[in-house]
Structure formats: C-alpha cells, structure tokens
Design a protein around this nucleic acid. Sequence first.
DNA 1: CAACTATCTGGACTACAGTCCGGTTATGAC
DNA 2: GTCATAACCGGACTGTAGTCCAGATAGTTG
Lengths: 225, 225
Amino acid sequence: MTESELTGPRSGYASGADELLVLRTSPPKERADAARNRSAVLEAAARLFGSRGVDGVSMDAIASAAGVGKGTLFRRFGDKAGLATALLDERERELQENILFGDAPLGPGRVDDAPSPGERLHAFVEAYLDYALTHLDLVRMSETASPGARYRIGAYRFWHRHVALLLTRATRDSGVHADVDAFAHALLAPLGAEHLHAMVAEQRPERVRDATLAVVNALLASLTP
Amino acid sequence: MTESELTGPRSGYASGADELLVLRTSPPKERADAARNRSAVLEAAARLFGSRGVDGVSMDAIASAAGVGKGTLFRRFGDKAGLATALLDERERELQENILFGDAPLGPGRVDDAPSPGERLHAFVEAYLDYALTHLDLVRMSETASPGARYRIGAYRFWHRHVALLLTRATRDSGVHADVDAFAHALLAPLGAEHLHAMVAEQRPERVRDATLAVVNALLASLTP
DNA sequence: CAACTATCTGGACTACAGTCCGGTTATGAC
DNA sequence: GTCATAACCGGACTGTAGTCCAGATAGTTG
C-alpha cells in the first residue's frame, strides 16, 4: 500500500480543498482487459461474500468465479484485505467526502453555520459507527487479514488525522496541553472492527454506540474543562 | 478454551478469596509422557521464539525441535495462540495474583491501607502496560493468531472484570449512572497488543504509557465529578 | 503379572494465502 | 498495417496452520 493510495487506488476527489488530507493520483491509464478483470473480480467477490460470508470464501473461489487466474487477483488487490478495501471503497469515500466537504455537523458546513469541534467529533463517531457496523465483516477483513493491517491502510490515517485535527481545535482555546495525537489513537481504538465485532456479539448496537459516545464525551470534557 | 480455564489451565490460586474471579480446576492428572512432551515443547518454543522471533517460527519447526509430532503440539495447545498463552502463563498469573491479593495500590492492600479505585485503576494500567510491552510479541500472538482470539481468552475476561469492578466502586458514591461494563471494554481497547504494537512503532513507550494514563484519568474524571 | 481401556502420539493429509515466471496481449509509434 | 515493448495473465508452486486416525502406551484392575 503506497502513500499515493491514501484514499484508495484511483480515488479522485473534487479538486482544490484540503490537499493535506487528499493526495491525488495521476490516473495510470488502466488497460481494457485489466479493467474488465477488475470489475469481474469485484462483482464475483461481492456476490460470493454476500451468499457465503466473508470468512467462508477463499481467494481461489473468487478467482475462478470471476474467470480469472489467481495471480491476477493478487496482482490487482494485493491480498484479501486489499480486496475487502476495494469493495468498501465507494462507501468509505462517500463518508470521507462528507467529512471534508459536507454539511454540519459531520462536515465543516457553511461559514455562518460552523459546528464546534465537539459537535463534529460526535457526528464523526456516529457516522463511522454506522458505516462500520453496516459493513462489519468487510471492514473486519480489511483490518485483520494480516497483522497490523488496520494501522497501515490509508483510511486509518485519514480518520486519525481528522480526529486529531478536531481535538487540536477543541483544545486551542481551552489552554489545556494534551497529546492530541495519542488521544486520537486512543479514541479510535474502540472503533476497531475487531473490538466492535466482540462488542456487538454481546451487546445491542445502540448500547455500543451510546457507550462509545460517552467515552468520547469524557475525553472531550477532560480537554475542555 | 473452556470456562474452567479462566486463568489458564492448571492455575491454582491460594484458596478462599474472590471465588467470582477464580474458577479452580480439579487437576485432571496428566500422563507422564504427556508432561514430558509438554515441557519439551515449551522449552523448544521459548528457545526458537527467542532466537528467530515469534513470527519467524512455524509450528512444524517447534514440533520437530521438541522431538514431537505435529498432532501432539496442536492437541496440547490448540493453536499458535494457545502456545503463546501457555508461555505467558506464569507472568500473567503473577500479575493476576498481585491484583487479587497484592499490596496497594495494585492489589487491595491491608485494611488500614486501602487504595481508592482510581489509584488501583492507575496502578493496573501501569502494571499491565509494563507486562504487555515487555512481552509484546507473545501477547500479540496470543491475541491475534485467530480472529477474535483476544476476547475469547480467559485473561481478557479477567482484566475486564477487574476494571469494571473498580469503575463500579468508583461510581458508587458519586451518584453517576454509567455503563461501566462498556466503559471497561473501551478502556481496555487501547491496551490491545495490536494497538500497542502500532503505537510503539511510532512513539516512545513512555509516551504511550502517559497517553494511556491520561485517557484513564479522563474516563475516571467523567465518572467521578 | 496380564488383560484392558482411556489417553496420547505422530506423520500423512487438506485447505488456504500468497509468490513466481514463461507466455500473451493491448497499446502507441512509425 | 506492423513492430516493439510494457503491462498483463494464469496456473503451477511453496510454505504454513490446522485436522485426522490407526497404532502405541501409561496407568488400572483383578
């Protein structure tokens, strides 16, 4: 996973804003056969994952269902986590765009409608939980297929940067000195797919959401007394 | 992993205290050859892990180094995570005993020396980080070898119960109503080996410790205004 | 001591992720 | 159209986790 894939391969945001967060890739003109195979694989993977579950489908099965060799599959997507990431790409990008450019409180909103960092953080956690819980199996696969995957993929850096930025803004006026970087990591820890998976196995999703929001409130309160 | 192995196979605490936390196992009399093989495997595993790293050693290599068949290895330890857990057993048990019976502030201390729940929580997090960071590779293997392993092993239940108990005591007098169970999970999330591994990869251990303690303080403060 | 049985043993076996490379094909230049 | 070349293709191959079961063995009972 290279730096240029911060938001996934072939992303392409509306240009102009927030270059820090979005590194654009110059489209490396994909060959026609490669494009055909790419979409055949994604289609087959979506179908098989849907019917047999993410864990119940082998890469061989996906390759043969897509009418494609195994080498091709791995060449295009790296590994199973990469394939899951590609399938999530669209939804994830939608969320990221709403965060960067969308309405308040998730996005920055209009100038006369600017939400507080705390409000945005709240909205982010709610939106992220909604996204992750809806696609939990895929997110989990993208984060745990190989050890450490979660922290290597571009999406994590995006979430971390966003949270750290909001925390920085929240503390700016309060005079509190805190390690926002580390706080952001700690805040993202209970949003990990592995953790969420274990939580929803024994609690109802609303309770998971409420508890996570309570933790966010506690952290915020300690930064803005 | 059965319920009777809450503190690892063949645990055996000093009897009498805190039966809720410690389920004793009646020793199922291990055969002599089995005992010999068990220690041969543990010895070989410790040696190989030490020299080639936890990730660089296959189960085949351990089996053949121990002069034992592969089936025996898996029969005794279940999987690679189980083997790692067995290697950690002694240290882990030591920590658990200090928590249950040890001196303040980690343990309950003497009657005339009782630490506050907050002090004990602080001490727990420090002691746990010390333990986990010292044996990070092994702990990580025990938690991530199979998906969801962390939340299945008995040790996690122990830590969670301990933290939840302390949080309950801390809130008892403050009149705050909170989901201590979920808070305890959230507090343990940044103590996961996967998270710690990613953190120490880019920060110095002291900073990881300080940040984690700051998060604990924030959560405590929100429960005891 | 001999027979009996529950437990243990070990290596062959399966399934899966991921790698490699000789052959193939799309695409751009002339 | 044809040629050169970079990109792509796919299936054989490797290494590893984990399973299975026929045979061996420790401990027990009469």
